[in-house]
Amino acid sequence: MAKLIQSDLDHCLDVTRRGKSNLWFVGRSLPGPRRAMFASAYASMRVVDDFVDDEFLVLPDDERLRRRSDAHKRVDGWLTSMEAAICGNADPAKMEIAFPDPRIQRAVAACFDGGDIGPGPWQLLARSMHRDIDETPFGDWDDFIDYCEGATVAPASIFLYVIAADLNGPPSTADRLPAQAADCVRDMAIFCYLVHIARDIIKDAAAGPALLTIPDDVLHTHGLTRTDLAGAVRGGSDRRLRDLISDLAARAGDYRLRGEGWRDRLMPLLGLRERAAFGALMTVYGALHDRLKDDPGFALDRDPEQREELRRSVLAAADIPF
Rank of each mutant, 00 (worst) to 15 (best):
L270W: 04
A41L: 08
G297I: 11
A154F: 06
A181W: 01
E63R: 13
A206G: 08
G271C: 13
G150Y: 01
D294Y: 09
L124A: 15
S7D: 15
L212D: 00
A317L: 11
L79P: 00
F322D: 14
P178M: 07
I97T: 15
P321T: 01
D76S: 04
R35A: 01
Y285H: 14
Y42S: 06
I202R: 11
A277R: 05
D70K: 04
A93Q: 10
S246G: 15
G115A: 10
Y255N: 06
H130E: 01
T221Y: 12
D10Q: 15
G286E: 06
L125V: 12
Q123E: 13
K94T: 10
I245E: 05
M129Y: 08
D61S: 13
Y193M: 07
R263M: 15
S313N: 14
E260I: 14
P31A: 03
G150I: 06
R35V: 13
I163L: 13
L266V: 05
I145F: 11
A276Q: 15
L57Q: 06
D101R: 03
N168A: 15
I201W: 00
L219M: 05
D264I: 10
E135S: 09
Y147P: 05
E274I: 06
K20F: 14
G235M: 06
L244C: 08
R34A: 01
A317M: 10
G114R: 14
P102C: 05
L4M: 06
E96G: 12
A165I: 07
N89P: 02
G297A: 15
R265T: 11
A110C: 09
D216L: 11
D76A: 00
R291L: 09
P119I: 11
I245F: 04
P178H: 02
H220G: 07
S128Y: 07
D132F: 10
L241P: 05
D204A: 09
H222G: 12
V218A: 11
A207D: 03
R67Y: 12
Y161F: 14
W24G: 00
A107F: 11
A39V: 04
L241Y: 03
L229E: 01
L194I: 02
Y193S: 04
D76W: 00
D228S: 07
T213I: 12
S7A: 13
S128L: 02
A206D: 12
E96D: 14
A93E: 12
F298M: 07
T221G: 13
G169V: 13
A280V: 01
W122Q: 11
D54N: 03
L272A: 15
R199A: 06
R64G: 05
A182C: 07
P31T: 02
D301W: 10
F138I: 09
E149F: 12
L167K: 07
